[in-house]
Amino acid sequence: MTSQATQGAMPAPRARGWRRLPESVWIRVLSLLALLVVWQLASMAFTERYVPGPWNTFAAMGELVQSGEIPRHFTFTMTRMLSSFAIAMSIGTVLGTVMGLYRRGEQMLDMWVMVGLTIPSLCYIIVAFMWLGLNDRGAVLAIAWTTFPSIAINIWQGVKAIDQRLIDMARVFRCSGTRRILTVVIPQVLPYLMAAARFGLGVVWKVTVFVEVLGGSDGVGYMLNYSFQMFNMTDVFAWTIFFTIVMLGIELLILKPIENRLFSWRPDIRA
């Protein structure tokens, strides 16, 4: 809106090209440039061996893409990540719903979900690897295990926050049971489900890399560890940046659009 306002009565804003970009985008671009400058200065101050400069890092990234290492290891990491995320989301949603709906379920489970949340993920990882071995099954178990308590807690809060008064309204107007769930209950829980998914993905990302460092033979975490063993700081930087790019991509290309679609009615999100 700001860009249109500054253009006044211009009939075809499209014609202005890059000038159409809103101020917020400019500030982000500027902050990125500032980061590059600081990075370059740091590299000059501490030498390339400890802080590889942006250009060397980008060159290393180019090589990694060309060699096919990037798609290969990201496929491994993403597969582990998504399967354990799906498992954690399913278990977390079921537990959270039971805890939110039934007082007895809450009394039985709330302490253990809290305990599950406080146990360090390293403990789960070690136990999972000792049970299932240093393989994908062990990795997925470890990641899902670390992640599901936080998802359960989000869903639990969401189900508890369901407004009974709206359900009563629907019943008075003789809305059928299934439609009541679909049009009155689920829209109320969706924001919490979305928060749970986002939070869960954040945990899954970190733990997946961690698991791969400890017991992987492929994947981004493994490659980070490999670069560490070689003391190849440039590759450590390159992998970290790729990782960040993929995470941002998921956030901006998948999560944000879903959220905008689902919650377009909410004033704070539309703004």
Partner: peptide, 8 residues
């Protein structure tokens, strides 16, 4: 519409 549909 929600009420109309509920009321058939």
């Amino acid at each position: 519409e929600f009420a109309l549909e509920s009321a058939g």
